[in-house]
């Protein structure tokens, strides 16, 4: 994948007409995201799930699928206003962790541009 991206960026993109170079750059960006996601594995999702489990007083899940379920419950509770009050601090902690984890894979440059460690 890494080699495919290098060939695309360094060798193929310059050969394309200018109006197609944006598509090539987008394709390279998509490959870069996939590479970062593959390198990170399930760890970021499980770390968020562990934080959520702490918030709800549950055992941390080992299965990323269970983490997705918890995220859905969390979103529903936020809409319903069920987590206001003393749990607000824990809520924000989860939201930060979730967002930073997503951006580390999706757009670390943006994270860095906003002053966060990548």
């Amino acid at each position: 994948m890494r080699l495919a991206r290098e060939v695309l960026v360094d060798e193929l993109t310059p050969l394309l007409p200018p109006e197609r170079q944006l598509d090539a750059r987008l394709a390279a960006a998509a490959i870069a995201i996939a590479l970062r996601e593959a390198a990170a594995g399930d760890e970021p999702a499980l770390a968020v799930a562990a934080e959520l489990a702490r918030l709800y007083g549950l055992e941390a899940p080992q299965d990323p699928g269970r983490g997705e379920e918890m995220l859905r419950r969390f979103a529903g509770d936020l809409r319903a206003g069920a987590l206001a009050g003393p749990r607000e601090r824990g809520v924000r902690k989860v939201l930060w962790r979730l967002t930073l984890a997503k951006l580390r894979e999706g757009n670390p440059k943006f994270l860095a541009a906003n002053g966060f460690e990548v």
């Binding site: 598509d23 987008l26 995201i33 939201l95 930060w96 967002t99 997503k102 951006l103 757009n107």
Partner: peptide, 27 residues
């Protein structure tokens, strides 16, 4: 359309901004 497909990722950039606006220094 690759541009459209990747645009969805930008939602997370907005989410970071929301946290920075509503919970400054929270991280």
């Amino acid at each position: 359309n690759l541009d459209l497909a990747l645009t969805g990722r930008r939602a997370t950039e907005c989410e970071l901004e929301l946290l920075m606006l509503l919970d400054p220094g929270g991280y």
